[in-house]
């Protein structure tokens, strides 16, 4: 597979909300391309006739009854939050 383009790296960075320097972009271009190349080994395996699977564990149909369990109280829920206000997590304004 061809190397990841610089543009693709920029798109991925944007989706991850990361601002990268040119040097970082070049570095991640290398690293991400290596990862893709590594994963490409799987493409070589012949999977004809094998149904696609979404899970590697031999489990299915795990469900729970619709029953309420105890929630955290408000102080516990916010315990690790850097900033809080009026019982809520406080974050920088996000307006697109």
């Amino acid at each position: 597979m061809a190397k990841l383009s610089l543009e693709e790296v920029e798109t991925i960075a944007e989706l991850a909300k990361l601002t990268l320097t040119d040097a970082e972009k070049a570095m991640f271009q290398e690293q991400l391309s290596d990862i893709l190349e590594y994963a490409e080994m799987l493409q070589k395996i012949d999977t004809t006739g094998i149904p696609p699977t979404a899970s590697a564990i031999p489990l299915k149909n795990v469900m729970r009854p619709d029953v309420n369990t105890l929630s955290l109280d408000n102080e516990e829920a916010l315990f690790n939050a850097p900033q809080t206000d009026e019982g809520s997590f406080k974050v920088q304004a996000v307006l697109e």
Binding site: R64, V67, N68, T69, L70, S71, L72, D73, N74, A77, L78, E86, G87, S88, F89
Partner: peptide, 16 residues
């Protein structure tokens, strides 16, 4: 298992 009721509930009290 948190309560799915959220309307008019004090913030962050039905969370886990």
């Amino acid at each position: 298992g948190c309560s799915a009721d959220f309307f008019g509930v004090a913030p962050n009290t039905h969370v886990c």
